[in-house]
Computed example of a mutant assay.
Amino acid sequence: MPGWLHELSVLWLAAFVFGVALVVAAAIYATVMSLSSGERGRAFTSISPGMLPPMGIVFALLVGFLAAQVWSSGDRAAAAVSEEASSLRSVVLLSSEFPGEPGAQMRSLVRGHIEDAVTKEWPQMSEQGVTLSVVPQPVADLLTMALALRPETPGQTIAQGEIVTSLEQALAARRQRIIVSQSSVNGAKWGAVVTLAVLTLFAIAFVHSGNRGGAAIAMALFAFAAAAAIVMIASQERPFAGPFAVSPTPLVQVEPALPG
């Protein structure tokens, strides 16, 4: 689906999709009704209404599969962000075991990573432009610093190990959110849904070609139902874009807790 659609609000996205659905249904209706005369009309009305339920079931199954995909991607994205925030929060708490400059520097690096993630990575993830080729410098510096610490007490020894583990978990969670940010419904799946919806509209028009009023009502009902399903999927297709995008709130909630 075009990227600009993900920038629309739900209302504008719905207006666009419902409008297109209505135009397509009207065009199919006009085409079929203009051809439903004479021998062609008898051929159209001879089509069994029994073919409509299987087509509707196949359409519903496709929509269900796509909905499951986008919802799963959204859940994985939210879980990755929460895991990253939790790991960074652990680093902040454990840094208090190292008073003075080491602890303050660790907290400053955590703040730097969060600010970069929110201001740089999030807009890029919404456009699927972030890759795993670059490791965030603040986290890399944090890991180097944590490994270079010289614990003076048993508590600091334990804290050092936990900080390193938490940083590894934060990096793994970041990798996961970047991978998930690349997910979307590919063109083949969208093509299958749209094609089946159009074919079903044609089938409805053929079956009800002898009753123009009934055909118009049935086609409008199916067109609006198909549009509602498409809006539901399109509005959540990309986990970090659109009106239901995963927000960096868990990370932002870590930052205010950081001392200067």
Rank of each mutant, 00 (worst) to 15 (best):
I28L: 06
L142R: 02
I28A: 01
A25K: 00
A148V: 01
K120H: 15
V185A: 04
G103Y: 09
S247Y: 11
V139Q: 06
A173L: 00
R175Y: 14
A173V: 00
M125R: 07
V135H: 10
L61F: 14
I233Q: 02
S82R: 13
L258T: 04
G41A: 11
A159Y: 12
P49E: 12
S82Y: 10
M55D: 05
R40D: 13
G41E: 14
P136I: 07
I47N: 13
A146I: 03
E101G: 06
M55W: 05
G210S: 05
A26W: 13
S184E: 15
D75G: 12
L5H: 00
M55I: 02
L88W: 00
R107E: 15
I158F: 15
A140G: 03
A228G: 03
M219F: 03
V110R: 06
V20T: 01
G260K: 10
V20C: 09
H208I: 04
E168Q: 12
Q253N: 13
V185N: 03
A173H: 02
H6M: 10
S87Q: 12
T45Q: 15
G129Q: 14
Q169G: 10
T249A: 13
G64S: 07
P151E: 02
V185I: 15
S9H: 03
A197M: 05
G56Q: 09
R175D: 15
A227W: 11
A234H: 00
G112A: 13
R174E: 14
F98K: 08
I178T: 00
M1C: 01
M33G: 05
G260D: 15
P259G: 15
L142F: 00
L93T: 12
R177Q: 10
F65P: 07
Q137V: 09
S181M: 06
V194C: 02
L132A: 08
Q137G: 04
V135M: 14
V58N: 08
Q182M: 01
D116C: 05
A15H: 09
F18D: 04
Q160F: 10
L258S: 05
V164D: 09
A170P: 10
E101D: 14
P243K: 01
D141S: 07
F59Q: 09
L22F: 14
H208S: 12
A104P: 04
V198A: 13
V231S: 11
V185E: 02
V164S: 07
L196A: 01
F244G: 07
A223W: 02
E121I: 04
I163L: 11
G129S: 09
F65R: 11
A78H: 08
G161T: 00
S209H: 11
S37L: 11
Q124F: 12
